[in-house]
Design a protein around this nucleic acid. Structure first.
Length: 435
RNA sequence: GGAGAGUUGGCAGAGUGGUAAUGCACCGGACUCGAAAUCCGGCGAACCAGGUUUAUCCCUGGCGCGCAGGUUCAAAUCCUGUACUCUCCUCCA
């Protein structure tokens, strides 16, 4: 959430910044007008309350002295009724103000490429050249089906579209990948967490998914009353529980920066993406992801974003997967982010790079929503900055391994770093179906 | 799922309608060569608004006893709803 004071005091600047993210300037005019009305009513209410406090004190004294106070009580009755009206007005205005504020995206950083969509994204750096083949590379969904390690038909029977069964060496590969990620992240100083996979609405609002993005997630309903949602939603990313772990808390300054990592499933409805990436592991309703979250002091967050991005890149480098890093444009970056680097891995069949990690500095945007603060050495409180990045999306990584490490005979070579995690298996070959 | 108890500052803990005791901790001072002990003083903090500055500081007021409503001139206290914690019972991996 943005700070109303910043908007109020830098209105033109705020309008320019948010215009690059598709926000109309009139929205800011409206919220500032509401804020002015609200503060005006608040001022009146506070004056009346000061009067009431003073007179009430006297009424108390009079009553103790068994004196008559009925005149004062009568006039205070009027004052109280005025206060009630004003407070109702204030509540109403605050709700309107919050309605708008909760739906405004974060201010983009000055360094972000400006543009409405991903065509304005800028490549920052590239690692290795795209994998070359002396045969026509297959799509990972065909590789997986032919090796009988991915089963799409059974998944569509059991669950529906955008689900999959991993089998045998496929399941082992998935497990190898996330264990490798967790081990590497831990070595880099991240503390491993196993969070809850269902979270309440306050948490969804704290990290910015709610109230604006209800359609993107799966919320639990009561079987007795399906119209009534329970206060529980399947996490779309481990970022939600990891950041909300600190919600409504004050962190000691010495503990910052805090680095945590977690493997979790990620549940996404993929509303509005019908027809896109209908085959393969790229776009699933349920996939596993290892997430990294950093909580730090404001002055550190830009350095921490670079570190976070390098941590994610390091994983792809160790796996030998070609990728490039892209700075997202103002229009393409996510709602909560001030700056985002996407890591895109090379996918040979599609002959292009595809997102496998998204590393964002959310500055104080989530911290303000979730009330996460720290106490500095002088005892002062400040909002923290929060960062999150995938390290990495597991399913997409498996897809990239299958495609980049495929051999002409249909087998897939296991990347060296994963061999120990695959119980020594160096190559995945077609086996007789065990089931 | 059933029954009961609880939620008050950094921590402990009192307060059943009149505007949040007390202790510990913490900060400042005295004493001391120094420290401890002792004594004196300060101290709930966050948030909001206004004034003053505009990086802070400071002043005034509001607010503030899990959260949200209600009753009242006045609510930590009474009423309603709700979240969470603990105990017991029941069930369960």
């Amino acid at each position: 959430m943005l700070d109303i004071k910043v908007i109020r005091e830098n209105l033109d600047w705020a309008k320019d910044k948010l215009a690059t993210r598709g926000i109309k300037p009139e929205e800011l005019d409206e919220v500032v007008a509401i804020d002015a009305k609200r503060r005006d009513a608040l001022k009146q209410s506070e004056q009346l309350k000061a009067e009431r406090n003073e007179v009430s004190k006297k009424i108390g004294e009079a009553k103790r002295n068994k004196e008559d106070a009925s005149d004062a009580i009568k006039s205070m009755k009027e004052v109280s009724s005025k206060i009630k009206d004003l407070d109702n007005e204030i509540r109403d205005l605050s709700e309107k103000q919050e309605y708008i504020l909760l739906r405004l995206p974060n201010f983009p950083a000055d360094s972000d490429p400006i543009g409405p969509d991903d065509s304005y994204n800028e490549e920052v750096r590239k690692w290795n050249e795209p994998t070359k083949f002396n045969f026509k590379p297959k799509a990972h969904w065909d590789i997986g089906t032919d090796l009988d390690i991915l089963d799409w038909n059974r998944a569509s029977k059991v669950s529906g579209a955008r689900f999959v069964f991993y089998k045998g060496a496929g399941a082992l590969l998935e497990r190898a990948v996330f264990n490798f990620f967790l081990d590497e992240n831990t070595k880099e100083g991240y503390t491993e967490i196993i969070p809850p996979y269902l979270v309440n609405d306050a948490s969804m609002q704290g990290t910015g998914q709610f109230p604006k993005f209800h359609e993107d997630v799966y919320t639990i309903v009561d079987n007795d009353d399906p119209d009534k949602p329970r206060d529980l939603t399947l996490i779309p990313t481990a970022e939600v529980p990891l950041v909300n772990y600190f919600r409504d808390e004050i962190i000691h300054g010495e503990k910052l920066p805090i680095n945590v990592t977690a493997l979790s499933p990620a549940f996404r409805s993929e509303a509005g993406s019908a027809g896109r990436d209908t085959r393969g592991l790229i776009r699933m309703h349920e996939f596993r992801k290892v997430e990294m979250v950093k909580v730090c002091k404001p002055e550190d967050s830009w350095d921490q974003l670079e570190k976070l991005t390098h941590n994610a890149e390091h994983l792809l480098q160790k796996l030998g997967l070609p990728y490039h890093v892209v700075a997202l444009s103002t229009g393409d970056a996510s709602f909560t982010s001030a700056k985002t680097y996407d890591l895109e891995v090379w996918m040979p069949y599609q002959d292009k790079y595809r997102e496998i990690s998204s590393c964002s500095n959310c500055t104080d945007f989530q911290a303000r929503r979730a009330h996460i603060r720290y106490r500095d050495e002088n005892g002062k409180l400040h909002l923290v900055h929060t960062l999150n990045g995938s390290g990495l999306a597991v399913g997409r990584c498996v897809a990239a391994i299958l495609e980049n490490y495929q051999n002409e005979d249909g087998s897939v070579t296991v990347p060296d770093v994963l061999v120990p995690y695959m119980n020594g298996m160096k190559k995945i070959t077609k086996e007789d179906s065990l089931i």
